[in-house]
């Protein structure tokens, strides 16, 4: 009956060796807020659970000298939320992270887990993508770095190879006149999975014209989308109504959702446009205040 091993490596190398040498399925335990649910529901039957929280690198949230941040893959949302620096610089990323579940879930939920669970609706992912975050991956062949949007391959699937795991993330320094935001649509006010999620990060010039933008959508396709046409629709504009309409249309056009218990194709598509407009307005407002 009892066949699951539990390991708590203290170094990255040790973790890689455990993952590589595992008989059967090896699962990484960071916050556990998805893993334990799957375990309990008999959706997974791992041979070994590797708790990475004893590896110092996975638990650190550091503001680097260049203004960028290194965020350990197992840092909990509540820990990040208590940090004034990152909350001020990247409010969208923190909001998105903060929307993963309840206060209790926040006590555990990590960016590494939310990303590698590879749900199309993971809340933190569109915000991470919009902010241009990258993942620092350790594996049998050493370290490599991938943009966050390259990590997931489809629902429940990642592009990580056997033995690989995400140790930490890099969040760029906040650009001057930059702002980010994340919004999601849920039927309640809390405790739901996003029906649509939208992240945006952009920069403005002195005149208020958008100089760069990255817009991402969650829960409207198999993986989180980077909507380049939406960014194009607003770059060079001051977010006039025509630009916002074009943005709305681009977000809708990018959608390739499914009908499921949480929403219909029509609903998701329409709301993607609505959230696109709203999230860009918030991000621009934040950028303008800097």
């Amino acid at each position: 009956m009892e066949s699951i091993q539990f390991r708590k490596p203290e170094t990255v190398d040790e973790a890689v060796k455990l993952l590589q040498g595992a008989d059967g399925d090896a699962r990484i335990l960071a916050g556990g807020t998805d893993l334990l649910v799957q375990l309990r529901a008999h959706m997974i039957d791992p041979g070994v659970i590797v708790d990475i929280k004893s590896i110092a690198e996975t638990r650190e949230l550091t503001k680097n000298d260049d203004g960028s941040y290194t965020i350990g893959a197992a840092v909990a949302g509540a820990e990040a939320h208590e940090r004034d620096d990152i909350t001020a610089d990247w409010p969208g990323v923190i909001e998105a992270w903060d929307l993963i579940g309840s206060t209790q879930i926040q006590g555990r939920a990590s960016l590494g887990g939310n990303l590698c669970n590879a749900s199309p609706a993971g809340d933190s992912v569109p915000a991470m993508v919009a902010a241009g975050m990258t993942a620092n991956i350790a594996g049998p062949d050493g370290r490599r770095t991938l943009p966050v949007e390259k990590i997931t391959a489809g629902p429940g699937k990642t592009n990580l190879k056997k033995g690989e795991f995400i140790v930490s993330f890099n969040l760029p320094a906040k650009p001057s006149n930059g702002g980010d935001a994340y919004l999601r649509l849920i039927p309640r006010t809390e405790m739901d999975i996003a029906v649509v999620g939208c992240g945006a990060a952009l920069t403005l010039d002195e005149s208020g014209t958008v100089t760069s933008a990255k817009i991402s959508l969650g829960a409207v396709a198999a993986t989180v989308l980077v909507v380049e046409d939406a960014a194009k629709a607003i770059i060079g504009t001051k977010l006039e109504p025509e630009a916002m309409s074009a943005l709305d249309a681009a977000c809708q056009a990018a959608c390739n959702p499914i009908d499921d218990k949480r929403g219909t194709v029509e609903y998701r598509t329409k709301v993607a446009g609505v959230l696109g407009r709203r999230v860009v307005s918030i991000a621009a407002n934040r950028a303008g205040k800097n």
């Binding site: 916050g31 556990g32 334990l36 708790d51 909990a76 006590g107 555990r108």
Partner: peptide
């Protein structure tokens, strides 16, 4: 830290 004890392993 406030957590759900159903989502923490005893181990």
């Amino acid at each position: 830290r406030l957590v759900c004890s159903c989502l923490v392993l005893g181990a």
